[in-house]
């Protein structure tokens, strides 16, 4: 880790101004990704602006049934907030299935949205990686890529987005509030994550110094019986190989509403629009689930070591949908 200077931010505008005015600086929240990558010499800021004491940790119930979650609320707090557990179980589950209890106490919601990929070439500062050093090449394409993405990839990057929570947020159409020197703006969470395309180094539409202040989760009655299914080698403390966040609205066995997003298989938290379109207005049966899963995975681009992920993702989608139906007490 290079030598760094440290500033403790005492207010949001000050924090934003500090990072905006000092291009070599970064915000420091929970640190669970950032300190790791600093030590690996992957991130090289010369100054950290510690935002942990900013008053951005509240979780507020909105009158319309939605939520506003402060960017500095910790994963563990959000996972157990009554409003989240009751109204958005998929979000609570996605948080609890992520990382470990200790890391969930540390990691903030905003930081979770900003976490970096786990690609072993990204994490190794001497390997070629377009995300770390644009134009240097992608080592994963011909390298070890069992955990890598099959959706949303480009010839420049196939790193999987590692967040579980963000998958639920994408399914829920959450909105990210950011604050910069030019003011406040909101970004739909699906737009908050950029596909690698030919600029894999650019992961978010943020300008330098813009700070996530909150995440809005709009009301969604069908989310009350939603779920997050995570598939991984190890029973706990591992990133997903495939995951699915699902909420269904059924009427006489017919799907009247559906939210579906995938994790572990894509370069960004993956809203399954094709599957959703396939399912809407159709009977909630195994055949439809399989067709929806197949539709979503149709554009998958696999490589030798991660070819299984297409099938695994299909099965994960089917299992999640089936479980969601069972949760509603309708078959």
């Amino acid at each position: 880790m290079r030598a760094i200077s440290y500033t403790r931010a005492t207010d949001v505008p000050g924090a934003v101004a500090a990072v905006t005015n000092d291009p070599g600086s970064s915000f420091l929240a929970g640190g669970t990704t950032e300190v790791d990558l600093l030590r690996l010499d992957v991130l090289r800021p010369n100054r950290l602006v510690d935002i942990n004491r900013l008053p951005l940790a509240d979780i507020e119930d909105r009158a319309d049934g939605g939520l506003v979650i402060g960017a500095l609320a910790r994963m563990s707090e959000v996972a157990q907030a009554p409003g989240v557990v009751e109204r958005y179980p998929m979000l609570s589950q996605s948080l609890l299935l992520g990382a470990s209890a200790q890391l969930r106490h540390m990691a903030s919601m905003g930081g979770n949205l900003m976490q970096r990929v786990r690609c072993s070439y990204y994490r190794d500062p001497e390997s070629a990686c377009n995300k770390r050093v644009p134009g240097s090449g992608c080592s994963a394409l011909e390298g070890v890529h069992r955990g890598h993405a099959i959706l949303g990839t480009s010839e420049h990057c196939i790193a999987t987005h590692p967040s579980d929570m963000a998958v639920a947020l994408v399914a829920l159409d959450a909105v990210v509030q950011v604050e910069g020197v030019k003011g406040t703006r909101t970004i739909p969470v699906d737009d908050f994550f950029l596909l690698p395309d030919d600029t894999p180094e650019r992961e978010h539409p943020l300008t330098p110094g813009e700070l996530i202040t909150a995440i809005e989760v709009p009301p969604l009655p069908m989310a009350r019986r939603s779920l997050y299914l995570k598939v991984r080698d190890r029973e706990s403390y591992e990133f997903a190989l495939a995951s699915a966040a699902v909420a269904l609205a059924l009427e006489d066995g017919v799907i009247r509403g559906v939210r579906l997003a995938l994790g572990g298989v894509a370069t960004k938290p993956w809203r399954a629009h094709r599957a959703e379109e396939t399912l809407l207005g159709q009977p909630a049966d195994e055949d439809m689930f399989a067709r929806a899963a197949a539709a979503e995975l149709a554009p998958a681009v696999t490589r030798p070591m991660n070819a299984f992920k297409a099938e695994l993702a299909r099965r994960t989608v089917v299992r999640a949908l089936r479980t969601a139906v069972a949760l509603r007490g309708e078959t």
């Binding site: 760094i4 200077s5 403790r8 000050g14 604050e179």
Partner: peptide, 25 residues
Amino acid sequence: MADKGASLSVAKPSTMEIRGPDGVR
């Protein structure tokens, strides 16, 4: 600490001391 972050008034560098990178107390 008065500024609660709601407004976008000019930052107050006086509250934003830069410490390090050398050893700090």
